[in-house]
Design a protein around this nucleic acid. Structure first.
Lengths: 189, 189
DNA sequence: CGAGTGACGGGACCAAGTGCCGTAGACTGG
DNA sequence: CCAGTCTACGGCACTTGGTCCCGTCACTCG
């Protein structure tokens, strides 16, 4: 067996989430997280650039969204392409076994402004990625921005609903329903 | 005359913006900002909760937006109410003499991820304020969220255009044009 | 004139984050 | 089997953001 259990990053994530849930984000030290995972501060910052990022690691979301948008049929409207992206992302990243983790993560983030700030930045990143993916499909600038914004809103609402559902539908289904509601609402503006 | 020049906060803001523009945000120390303003680190943190906030002080924006939305005629659609809010905010907060400052501020923010993160959080705050203001008008939940998101996008684009215009129209005018473009684009999604 | 009051200086202190070096197991080639 | 390299980690020193507390001094008001 290895000298190191080679789960370091994952162990740090669960240790951090546990401690944040117990005593709050700002009452938890990086050293405490590391010790709980059987590691040290040095190793923590070798796996994550900063304390907040331990809850925002899975950066595959951006790739999945852009892949899904690019893979949508050429005849699809911008929002149809977006829902195609949400669909592929949902299949890969939002599997049922991660639902409970996502729910705990969401409440922890909601309780701390620093974490909400990081989440806002991640949302911006996702939005610009969607804009780029749409522009690659030939969608004009402003239309891309609007569609990406609506897509980001849809993703946020879908994530809320999916992670809060005790035993609900899978992510893709919720995403489709949510998007149609958002579309209907945008017609009323 | 007062012992202190009583401009402390404003002096700190201009000192910070100058230094950030010269050598970058992360190569500038809070102590350096304070010394340039003829003050100390203690006084800096007495005026601003953290280093980033020195560029995000004017928190009147939220109040102006909500006031403007609430003051819109009852017959106005959600987006018409939003444009009314942008209008009043533009008259109070985006006067022509602040255009150059806003432009410098914008480039500094664009160059640093920490500042972009804070800007994203402020954007979230504005969005939720608009949601609340719309719900107070009786607009349903989801419609409010969509309208607020479109309003936030409009505000962002308007701010870009207004601060970049060498000698352009005033803020309200740009906002109105931008919103109609956003509205047209949302119909193409 | 004397007791607040308010804005600031100053210093101790903690936690986040960086950089560098050392170390021991794992892996590779001979 | 052995030497060299690689890799994930520990440990330490250091800078900076941010907090707390106390002292100072001009101004004010009775």
């Amino acid at each position: 067996m290895a000298r190191w259990q080679s789960n370091a990053a994952e162990r740090l994530v669960v240790a951090a989430l546990d401690l944040f849930a117990e005593r709050g984000y700002e009452n938890t030290t990086v050293i405490e997280i590391a010790e709980r995972a059987g590691l040290t501060k040095s190793t923590f910052f070798r796996h994550f650039p900063d304390k907040r990022e331990v809850l925002f690691g899975g950066d595959t979301m951006t790739e999945l969204l852009t892949k899904g948008i690019a893979a949508a049929p050429a005849s699809a409207t911008p929002l149809e392409a977006v829902v195609h992206g949400l669909d592929t992302a949902g299949r890969e990243a939002f599997t049922p076994d991660r639902r409970e983790f996502s729910a705990r993560r969401r409440t922890v983030i909601a309780e701390n402004p620093e974490l909400r700030e990081r989440e806002a930045l991640k949302g911006l990143g996702l939005t610009t990625s969607m804009i780029d993916a749409l522009r690659l499909r030939g969608v004009p600038e402003l239309t891309s921005r609007v569609a990406a914004e609506l897509g980001a809103l849809t993703l946020a609402i879908t994530y809320e609903r999916w992670s809060d559902a005790p035993d609900g539908d899978d992510f893709s289904e919720v995403a489709r329903r949510t998007l149609s509601e958002v579309q209907a609402a945008s017609a009323l503006c």
